[in-house]
Amino acid sequence: MLIQAHRATSIAEGPTLRRILLGITLIFLTLFLLFPLAAVFSEALSQGLSVYWQAINEPDATSAIRLTLLVTGLSVSLNLVFGLCASWAVAKFSFPGKSLLITLIDLPFSVSPVISGLIYVLLFGAHGLFGAWLKANDVEIIFAVPGIVLATVFVTLPFVARELIPIMEAQGRGDEEAARTLGASGWQIFFRVTLPNVKWGLLYGVLLCNARAMGEFGAVSVVSGHIRGMTNTMPLHVEILYNEYNFVAAFAVASLLALLALVTLALKALLESHNTNTPNAPRL
């Protein structure tokens, strides 16, 4: 009662407070998000559309775009499979070392991306643990596409699993057991019961994973070697162009990345509204 009364008065005092809070929020958003975003696009388009088009259509840029899409596609798929396996194992079974596993899944979040990249250099680089063997067998990992994929997978590892574990834990084993008593096989249970139950969370995790995979700079920078047209991803390409004072081209490629991020955000918002607004849709 006391708390409610208190809240009521604070709401009554609201208008001023609300304006101040909203004002601060808007100023921050404008300064740190909208201005930079607008700057990216205005700089990219400062010399007209044809220059913009040339900048993103030149061979090194298209190669960077292709590589980014390839790396993203591979690492998101790998993490989709890993995330499903890990969350299923954690949520539906009990085994020793479960909490350790959950902590390990979080590790990439707490490690600096540069270190994530260095781990792979230490393992697979020329002077690394497996370096000699890899060289003898003519397998290239560091300064090649496999290294970039490895580093990206590592950095984006937690997204899908983190999203799914709480959902699956909340749902428990009841639905799966019910399906079993009704005669369903393991695959039927997975595709007809478990997957539909977590599909929105899964999509959400994939989107986040996707956004991070496309934008990853630090870890990829360490293992890529920045070879133009070969091992340059979009974020690395932006940096190279920028360091060469080729601002228009740098911002043109950056604007593409920003666009991809905006599309991801829009999809995410769409997913969320679908989850809460459609009366017929099952809630998560």
């Binding site: 009841g174 639905d175 057991e177 019910a178 008593t181 007809r192 539909p196 139950n197 599909k199 809630r283």
Partner: peptide, 13 residues
């Protein structure tokens, strides 16, 4: 066996 679970375990999707 027809099994009815305590919290029904209906498929919500």
């Amino acid at each position: 066996v027809g099994f009815v679970f305590q919290h029904y375990a209906l498929f919500k999707t």
